[in-house]
């Protein structure tokens, strides 16, 4: 009873989003998707199901893919958050994934696109030469109703080729 009537206090936090530091006032229960969209202007972070089953809100938190719809904003203070809006370089060049999505017509309605790009990015940062099945597995949690995934898979594979020259980044090993 008491807890319900006593409204949880808001706090002012700083988030690092796409390389920018953004100050936001958040209620304790606030989820990352809302903070990114409302306080940080990152409307590319889409909400398709609000319960971890469509992937449209996929962002990278400290380089790993996370679903912003079930991530408390308070948990990512001090983390490096990347949305699809980080993909374009500061001099305006598109990322190879963005180029490939355009070139291969992997975009239809565009609603799943930012999440797909981030799921693809998470894969390619870890595995620079994925097989088709690895690409399919990497985006299995990202639903698309428009494309049948055909061109999305093709675009991610093509982007991997383009990026191929870059060195592979491996996950840090766990202490054992």
């Amino acid at each position: 009873m008491d807890a319900r009537t006593q409204k949880p206090a808001r706090q002012v936090v700083e988030l690092e989003v796409d390389g920018e530091t953004i100050e936001a006032t958040i209620a304790p229960h606030r989820l990352l998707v809302d903070v990114l969209r409302d306080a940080c202007g990152r409307t590319s972070v889409k909400e398709g199901c609000e319960s971890a089953s469509c992937g449209a809100c996929t962002v990278l938190v400290d380089d790993v893919p996370r679903l912003a719809c079930i991530t408390p904003a308070a948990d990512v203070i001090g983390s490096k958050i990347r949305t699809a809006e980080s993909l374009r370089s500061s001099d305006g060049r598109l990322h190879a994934l963005q180029e490939a999505f355009i070139h291969h017509h992997a975009v239809q309605c565009g609603f799943c696109t930012p999440g797909m790009l981030m799921a693809g990015l998470a894969l390619l940062e870890e595995n620079s030469r994925p097989t088709e099945q690895e690409v399919r597995d990497a985006i299995a949690g990202n639903l698309c109703r428009c494309t049948g995934y055909v061109r999305i898979v093709r675009a991610i594979l093509a982007a991997a080729q383009t990026l191929g020259a870059r060195p592979e980044r491996r996950l840090p090993e766990m202490a054992s």
């Binding site: 790993v64 299995a140 990202n142």
Partner: peptide, 9 residues
Amino acid sequence: VASPAIRSA
């Protein structure tokens, strides 16, 4: 299990 984004959390 599930998807990469879920396995991260």
